[in-house]
Design a binder for these strands. Structure first.
Lengths: 207, 207
DNA sequence: ACTCATTACGTTGAACGTAAACATT
DNA sequence: AATGTTTACGTTCAACGTAATGAGT
């Protein structure tokens, strides 16, 4: 039982004519007719019968078409699972932080990171007083820094994106935590950063 | 995502080496390697990586192989459904009976026949006193007749096969109620009976 | 006449095998 | 050396299209 041919039978059940199936699947009626005939031969049962100018499914054809639907559903489900895997965040994300902020963010981050397989965090504590702290963005995917102007009075910022004093351009990548698909899309476009940046998952030339 | 290639990946996950998959699927290692490479290309992810002399699935490869298993299960289930359809009793079964026996058997038969789609009974009452009653087997799939020796004392026979006075040879077919597969297996082998006998489901030459 | 399915026949490319190269133990 | 994978290259057959034919309204 070939899946591709079963799919044709399913289409025939839904669309009602070989010509319709042919146009829907970008084929000629001839090809569809031939493939259905091959399927009939494989199965060993008449699956269609003429009805006026067109054809209709026999009892056997209908039941077989139903099984084809089940298979098609299974395949779509499988593809959905795969897409979920591809779009899931993954990879190694390096974070520079300083002790106070680290105590704040890291435990929660580690928890969510541990919950997503394939995602790992590399955290390193730094001294926020160093003059070139912003330059750390060259070496890390995420840098947690003080606002140079000092924090406004009020509750401590609760999300990474709140360090609004950073210009968006300091982010070399739109999102440090990238999905597999994003990481795999293209080799880095001449990144000036040596060890970090939009590195691809593997040095493979194809992926 | 081609199902055949996914199947190869699944096999690779289970068997662990390309050579093993190749022998299991009656192919050369070369062919398997090439198909896996095509799959990798289609998918856009590295699915395998070298490990010593052999190869192992990557994370992506494993998840994709799992989806392949799901698809394989769905296909097997579909085939099981189809086989159930093929083996189910079906067709038109003609029965000759006489009033007394008919009252006995027919209601139950009609009930079970109605419960099995594709199976229809054609019942006709006859006079059991006619001299050529046994000849009716030429025209009917099942003939319910008196035992010529008369019934022994005791409870009424409760099943068709109890008319033990008939020789087995009076049955032209092993079983009057045939499955679709049996009916479809071969055109009748020069049956002497015109309208009945092991007739095939359709006059089609192939089936 | 028109529409749909089928058959005849030629073409092409995906899948495969053979053989050689490559890699690892 | 032995084992397992990959690459290069040639072959073949299944899937398809074009064109002609058949069948029904």
């Amino acid at each position: 039982m070939d899946v591709r041919r079963l799919e044709l039978l399913r289409e025939l059940g839904e669309r009602g004519s070989i010509t319709a199936v042919a146009t829907a699947t970008h084929r000629t009626p001839s090809a569809v007719s031939q493939q259905l005939k091959v399927l009939e031969r494989e199965i060993g049962f008449p699956l269609t019968e003429r009805s006026g100018r067109g054809i209709v499914l026999t009892d056997a054809g209908r039941t077989l078409a139903r099984t084809a639907t089940d298979i098609a559903v299974a395949i779509e489900r499988a593809e959905a699972v795969w897409n979920a895997f591809v779009d899931a965040p993954a990879g190694e994300v390096s974070i520079a932080t300083f002790p106070t902020a680290g105590q704040m963010f890291i435990p929660g981050l580690l928890k969510t990171a541990a919950a997503t397989p394939g995602l790992s965090l590399v955290v390193s504590d730094r001294d926020p007083q160093l003059p070139d702290f912003p330059r750390l963005t060259n070496d890390f995917d995420v840098v947690l820094a003080h606002s140079p102007r000092g924090l406004a009075a009020g509750p401590t910022p609760a999300s990474l994106s709140m360090s609004s004093s950073w210009s968006r351009s300091t982010w070399r990548c739109p999102s440090a935590i990238r999905s597999r698909a994003a990481r795999c899309s293209r080799p880095p476009t001449s990144s000036t950063r040596p060890g970090s940046g939009c590195r691809s998952a593997t040095p493979s030339s194809r992926c």
